[in-house]
């Protein structure tokens, strides 16, 4: 795979400030990665190297941790993150078919991003709203009792928003 052009920055003042604010520097790696992802959206190679340098740990350790936990992304995500719950309660109420409908509608597979950078499709494990199963989350918004027929409407809602934003 061709090397993506990584964002090269001399420093990450947000990370420095966060590091300084930690009362206990032990076990700071995961909190640092959480913060970095919150600030920059994903953990680029540069950010990982910077965190390694800052904490005085090998880059391999940072990479090892970043890839171990499913919440950390090493790649940039789409503007809207569509998360289909594949927890057990949603699964037995048909969320797999909902996920497939999104794959068809967006013409991407799960954990991929559309070429226009608008949508990232992913599955998640239980948001704890099992009473509304099957559940889909777009960003922070929760859609309950979703059927494959609802999928186009949900995607259109955000296509509309993106259109407004550009116009």
């Amino acid at each position: 795979m061709a090397q993506e052009s990584v964002e090269v920055r001399e420093s990450y003042p947000e990370l420095d400030a966060f590091y300084d604010s930690l009362s206990d520097k032990n076990g700071a790696l995961i909190p640092m990665l959480h913060r970095a992802q919150g600030e920059y959206g994903y953990l680029s190679q540069d950010v990982q190297l910077y965190v390694a340098h800052k904490l005085g740990v090998p880059a391999s350790k940072v990479y090892g941790v970043a890839t171990f936990y499913s919440l950390f992304n090493l790649e940039r995500k789409g503007q809207y993150k569509i998360n289909v719950c594949l927890g057990t309660a949603c699964y037995v109420r048909g969320s797999e078919a909902v996920l497939e409908a999104f794959e068809k509608e967006l013409n991407i597979k799960r954990s991929e991003t559309t070429s226009d950078g608008l949508f990232t499709l992913a599955s998640i494990r239980c948001v704890g709203a099992c009473g509304l199963a099957p559940v889909v989350m777009v960003g922070e918004k929760v859609y309950g009792r979703v059927t494959p027929d609802d999928v186009k409407g949900i995607v259109d809602e955000y296509l509309g928003k993106a259109g407004e934003g550009n116009g």
């Binding site: 948001v127 704890g128 709203a129 099992c130 009473g131 509304l132 559940v135 929760v142 309950g144």
Partner: peptide, 11 residues
């Protein structure tokens, strides 16, 4: 009293 846990808010 309005139930405002994750599920209530989602609903």
């Amino acid at each position: 009293a309005v139930g405002e846990a994750t599920c209530g808010i989602a609903a």
